[in-house]
Design a protein around this nucleic acid. Structure first.
Lengths: 351, 351
DNA sequence: CTGAAAGCGCTTACAG
DNA sequence: CTGAAAGCGCTTACAG
């Protein structure tokens, strides 16, 4: 069997039809595995497909059939390991169902999110998995995307959009984190990092407050320290925890990035998490297990969440008219050294 | 201005043409910003485009124009922060040039790589950025992809494929790492992790050997310890470093994952990197800066490499007939605590 | 079982 | 400056 010369020109159904002496329709039927084609014809066509190095043009087929085999994934940024793991799970599940993933990054900018969605929509995705940039306006996004393309929102709630939503159980997670510290003897527990206007932060604070109240502890306002959810900003804000006496002995952090920043800031003050201050993060990013000390955190398994998001959007594609649904993914505590009891609270440890 | 009812049906050029009393051709010219259209006509059409919520179907346009506005990115796995950063850089640069990124993960399996490439090719990417799975056969991939779609190979060399190649300067990197340890007084330096059959591992070993030889040190065979490039496997293999006396006092590691595993393995033996053994990694993944101790490593800035890869493939699209080129990206040493001189070699430090 | 024909949504010479 | 017509690569009733 001879191999065709390296062709710049695209090989089309017509080329193969001509080469095997049948019509384009017959070649198409062979490609789509139709039982209508005679065995001999099929074999002849298949040989010719290989000989010419035919590549199916799914875009043309989809155009004709009025279907799409891609799903757009719009996230903050792959540099964030939480989203990288999530994207990895999405891609794995989508690929397994014959879809291709169109990638888009917002960099947490509403402006870029608008541009990215517009560009991706022009590529006619069957659906969109969207982790909204902070400050997104649901109604506005709804107008931008329109009613034709189903969207699964992940992580950050988007009211007014009437889309499916995959939520992390932020309230329970923060309760678990706070309960863990209470159980280790802490009473003065801060909530460190995040912004009031982020829905995930509000929910985590709510869980924190609830756990404290249930344990008979009244949260002091100065235990709430805001900061942008990055390591650097967190390290800069550590001082705010210790401006008033008595200072907190432990902190539930908005997320792991903030927790790592807090630990760095503690170190800069000659203190050490897990030694004279207890820290719990949120997310369980890969760094959490190798930091010094390893970070106790709330694990959300972003990779599994990605697979779940993919399943949910595929389900929606099958049933476009079902009412919008919210799915809450459970989280669990991953205890590590950063939340060990501080020396001040544990007389059994020598200084 | 009234908003059209939420339409399930796609709004096409014909709808807009009908709505604004012109032909489809004119609407198309408006969309593409042609100066041929009269100002009044343009305004009328643009109003109608908005009113109906028209979404450009780039796939149909590309089909007609015989162009493509997507680039496929095929990597090992986004769970690996090195590739996540790389992908982030690729996507950033591609989006900036109006291309959309089609994502594919091989999970380091030649089998899956084949399937993923086949699927992505059917989506007609203008080009492919490929970080080949270990054990890839260049000639075979060449046959699979064909001559129509340009490929930029990243990270792992693919002989016989005649494609552009973006290489990391592995030899120089390993020389830097080894030189750093030599300078700190080490003579018995191991090369830990990686596989003989990986080209990047071979090159890193070559740089290591070269630096040792230049310093008058003859590398001992037992200083070469192979293992799969994962944290877990590395931790399991640590014992192999110490089976014979005199044992090495330092190690250049194949990559950061292996280095982190080595540090964990040392800890399990009651030893500590940077204290009584010096460790240098390769890649500078995010974990490196927060490990205990922070990991000295060779930084390759994968995000910048991603942007560079995108630039290279776009350049290739502009000039498909230029000869294939190899680009070598330079790397640099990022010193941290894990390579501090061991106590045994530095009498100035108290035990 | 196979082929001729229409059509998916768009673009682009070509007339006018 | 605008419109009618052909065509990108494919699929799918519809005849035969």
């Amino acid at each position: 069997m001879s191999i065709a010369p390296p062709a710049r020109r695209r090989i089309t159904l017509s080329d193969v039809a001509r080469g095997s002496g049948v019509s384009r329709a017959t070649v198409s039927l062979v490609l789509r595995g139709s039982p209508l084609v005679h065995g001999d014809t099929r074999a002849r066509v298949e040989t010719e497909l290989k000989r010419q190095g035919y590549v199916y043009h799914r875009g043309a087929a989809n155009l004709r059939r009025n279907v799409s085999t891609s799903v757009a994934l719009v996230i903050n940024d792959l540099s964030n390991p939480f989203f990288a793991e999530f994207a990895s799970g999405v891609d794995e599940a989508l690929a397994g169902s014959g879809y291709v993933t169109l990638l888009g990054s917002t960099g947490e900018s509403v402006e870029r999110q608008r541009a990215v969605l517009t560009s991706l929509l022009e590529h006619d995705p069957a659906g969109i998995i969207l982790s909204p940039a902070e400050g997104s306006d649901g109604a506005q996004l709804r107008t931008l995307v329109g009613a034709r393309t189903p969207v699964l929102v992940f992580n950050r709630e988007l009211p007014d959009a009437c889309w499916d939503f995959l939520a992390l159980d932020n309230v329970s997670g923060a309760k678990l984190a706070t309960g863990h510290l209470l159980q280790r003897g802490h009473r003065r527990i801060a909530f460190f990092g995040g912004h009031r206007d982020s829905s995930s932060c509000r929910q985590r604070r709510e869980g924190y407050r609830h756990a404290l109240t249930e344990a008979g502890v009244t949260p002091e306002p100065q235990w709430l320290v805001e900061c942008a959810p990055t390591r650097l900003e967190a390290a800069r804000q550590v001082g705010a925890l210790f401006v008033r006496d008595p200072a907190p002995t432990a902190a539930v952090c908005y997320n792991d990035a903030v927790a790592l920043g807090l630990m760095a800031g503690l170190a800069a003050r000659g203190r050490r998490a897990g030694d004279d201050f207890a820290v719990v993060g949120f997310d369980d990013i890969p760094e959490a297990s190798v930091s010094a000390p390893p970070l106790t955190t709330i694990a959300v398994d972003p990779r599994a969440r990605g697979r779940q998001a993919a399943e949910l959007i595929l389900q929606r594609l099958r049933d476009p008219d079902a009412p919008a649904r919210t799915t809450v993914a459970s989280v669990h505590l991953q205890p590590r050294a950063s939340s060990d009891a501080p020396r001040a609270l544990d007389p059994g440890v020598s200084p």
